[in-house]
Structures are given as structure tokens and as C-alpha cells.
Design a protein around this nucleic acid. Structure first.
Lengths: 149, 149
DNA sequence: CTCTCATTTGAGACTCATTCTCAATGAGAA
DNA sequence: TTCTCATTGAGAATGAGTCTCAAATGAGAG
């Protein structure tokens, strides 16, 4: 977690009249220091392993604040769980997901972004955000026959 | 529900050694006769209203068969519920969703499809399916000030 | 048409991610 | 340091979806 990140978090808490608590800082640190797409439960368990005992409720509540204020990004790959990734200084990107091993690759296409905007314009929608996920088999997994699953 | 649709369903059931039961037919009919993006619970309630009492479990089980065999399409807009739409003779399309009123518009872009394929190729993934959703405000809702929510 | 039996159904228990409740604690303004 | 609300933790509650199991039933065999 960089100073910049912490500062930004403090500013958000301050602007929203929320308190800077050790629990909130630890949860934010956990997400900042990982490059994975983390589930709330994983964050909870990582903290626990580091002897930082914070309740699940607080983890969920903090992730909500972080998400609502754009300090983290979240995604849902259809299994009913949110996955979070740190987001500061990151540009928008989309995901390519291996349905067998779960590997997630990030991609960016300005061309697609332009077309998305055109589509929204065409239907008179004000475009606010999007979800774009490609599901398939990664290099490794496409080699292994399906029967091995 | 067209004869063609029913035939296709019968063929699937037959191929999979599944039985043709009145419950399965009624659930399939319900989806075929709607142009909405239906939740399982909505299907259950619509049937109930028509005095067709089928248990939730059977609705869920039938939707699963239909989805697994490509007789319906399903989508998840991030609220933890699957929404189903009938699919026969339909080409692939994506969705533009109003975050205020929930209106869903379908769109197709061959250009985006090509780029998606290029992205998958680039990372050596075998592309199997994708999720592409644009979230925004529809023509009506962008007029109304946010404070009205 | 009847028999047989594996499949299917319904009712309700269960799962699991997430949210809620509420008493106890703590941040931070004065 | 005091005061006051926001925050926390523990566990209950929620809700979509799945599972269990006894009873019912489709459909092939005779």
C-alpha cells in the first residue's frame, strides 16, 4: 500500500464522515498488496493468517466503502461471489477467464470502447460502466483433453 | 411455444434419456411465450398464477436442463440471480441495461465479436463464450434528476 | 393394457455469500 | 478528558439456489 493510496483512502473517509479505523486500514492494505482478484472470504482469511482478526462483517463493509468510492474494482464471474482488485492508477480493463483453471488475464481494447459508446448513443443510453468477460480455455488447458476434468 | 421448439425440446430429452413430463413442458412453454429476461422465481409465480402448480425445485431443475442444452440463454447482471430468455433461432446478442428502471435492450456488433476473437487469439485462449453488458441510463431515466431516486 | 422400475416430483431442509442486529467499544471533536 | 456517535464483532437472518427422500409417474417390456 503506497502513501498515495492511503492518502486517497483517508480523503474518502474524511469526505464521507467515516472514521479511520485500524480495521479499515488493514483491509485496504490487504487488497492493495495483492495482484489477485480476491474474494471477501480470501481477504478475511489472509488477514486472519497474519493474526489480524477482523470480522467478516467488517471486511464486507469495508469492501463496500472501497468499491463505492472507486478505490477498488469488483467483478462477478457468475459464481455468486464478488472478486475485488485494487484499482488506483489503473486504467479500465476487461477480463479473459479460463473456465478450467480460473486464470484471469486482463485486456484493453480502445476500439471496443469506442463501439460500446456508439451502441449506447444509438439507443440513447448514457453509458456509465460495462462488464466484458471472455470465457475460454487458456494455452495450458486447451492442450489437456476434456476427459481429464 | 412453436411446434419446432417443442420438437427440439423432445429431442433433447430423448437424447439424454430424460422423461417428457407435463411439468417440464409447462416450464418450457412459460419461457418460450415471454420476451422478458425472466428470473426462476418469476417463472414459478407466472405458472402459479395460471394455476399450474410446479415446485420451485422443478422450475430450477428444468431451467438447468434447458440451459445446458442451449434451449435458453441466461444472464447475470450482478444481483445474484440468473435471468433466462428463450433462445431458439436467436443469434447471439449482448445487453444494454438501464441501472435505474431495469430496461434491457439487446444489441449485436459483429465488429466487437471480431475483436474479441483477436484478443483471445492474442493470449492463446480458445474462446468459448462471453458476457458483454453495458450499464447506463435509458432515454427516459437520464431526463429525471438523480435526486428523485 | 398392465407391470415394472428407474426417473421425476414436491416439500422442506440445507448451503453459502452476504447483510443485518444490537450491545459493547472506540475515534476524534471540543 | 469527556462526550457522542460511528464502528465493531458475534451470531442471527436473508435469499437464491441445491439437495434429500418418500411418493408418484413415464414409458418400455410383455
Amino acid at each position: 500500500m503506497t502513501d498515495l493510496e492511503l492518502e486517497k483512502f483517508k480523503r474518502v473517509l474524511n469526505d464521507e464522515n467515516l472514521k479511520l479505523t485500524p480495521q479499515r486500514v488493514e483491509v485496504f492494505r490487504e487488497v492493495c498488496n495483492s495482484d489477485e482478484h480476491l474474494e471477501a472470504e480470501e481477504i478475511y482469511l489472509s488477514l486472519k493468517q497474519r493474526k489480524v482478526n477482523i470480522s467478516r462483517a467488517t471486511v464486507y463493509r469495508t469492501m463496500d466503502i472501497l468499491y463505492q468510492h472507486d478505490l477498488v474494482q469488483r467483478m462477478d464471474i457468475g459464481d455468486g461471489k464478488w472478486r475485488y482488485e485494487h484499482w488506483l492508477d489503473c486504467h479500465q480493463h476487461d477480463h479473459l477467464i479460463c473456465i478450467r483453471c480460473g486464470t484471469i488475464v486482463e485486456f484493453v481494447s480502445h476500439q471496443i470502447e469506442e463501439i460500446q459508446q456508439d451502441v449506447a448513443d444509438k439507443f440513447n443510453y448514457k453509458l456509465l460502466r460495462h462488464v466484458h468477460q471472455l470465457f475460454g480455455l487458456c494455452k495450458q488447458c486447451r492442450k489437456t483433453p476434456m476427459s481429464v476434468i
